[in-house]
Amino acid sequence: MTHDHYDDAFIADWLGKVHTIAVVGASPNPARPSHGVARFLAMHGYKVFAINPGQAGRDVAGLPTYARLADVPEAIDMVDVFRAPQYLPGVVDEALALSPRPKLIWGQLGVRDDEAAATAEAAGVAVIMNRCPAIEMPRLGLKGPR
């Protein structure tokens, strides 16, 4: 799949069918986008887990916080990545090691790595990059998961 453009229907479909989201790189700082997006997703009906090794066990954006994806005690539908692009391959590897695997890996604005995306897609995991669900949901008139 090319990651230069996504149909609105593709984005809307994914945002409608995921229910649990792990936000990798969630910050405890309310001024950081990762904090606000994690809260936004939780307020719109998603079950959200913050992933931040330095904050594990603490409250980040009112959410349970874990050091790594494997520590989340339930299946994750979507991994939302707030890390620099060079870290995306490692996040993809960590996500692919989960059982069950997430259905979708979402790279936030500025987070794009086509090789990492190809790795995820080859394993049957969908990828959206360089987008923000907190921007896409209002733009598409979405309320949350179906």
Rank of each mutant, 00 (worst) to 15 (best):
D13G: 12
V23D: 03
L15R: 06
I21C: 13
A56D: 02
N29M: 10
V37A: 03
A38K: 03
F82V: 02
A123E: 07
I51H: 04
A70T: 02
N130Q: 03
E136T: 04
D80S: 00
I11L: 15
H44T: 01
A56Q: 02
L88G: 00
Y66Q: 07
T2F: 12
A116H: 14
V81A: 03
A117K: 11
D80K: 10
I51Y: 05
I76L: 01
Y46N: 01
M129W: 08
A97V: 01
P33W: 11
L88Y: 05
V81E: 02
R131Q: 09
F82N: 06
N29K: 12
T2L: 12
V111S: 05
D114F: 09
A134H: 01
A134Q: 06
A67K: 05
L142C: 01
F49A: 15
H3D: 08
L142Q: 03
V79P: 09
D114H: 08
G45R: 04
V18Q: 08
A50P: 00
T119M: 05
F49H: 09
E94N: 10
G107R: 00
M137R: 11
V60H: 08
R146F: 05
H44N: 14
G107T: 08
H19C: 01
A97I: 09
Y66V: 11
P100E: 06
P100F: 00
V18M: 04
A67D: 04
I128V: 15
A12F: 01
E136L: 10
A126G: 05
V60K: 07
R32V: 10
Y87E: 15
N29C: 02
L63H: 12
I135N: 05
A67R: 08
V23N: 05
A26L: 05
P100R: 03
F10I: 09
R139G: 10
V60I: 14
H3I: 12
G57W: 10
G57T: 00
E115W: 12
Y46Q: 06
G36C: 09
D80G: 07
A67E: 04
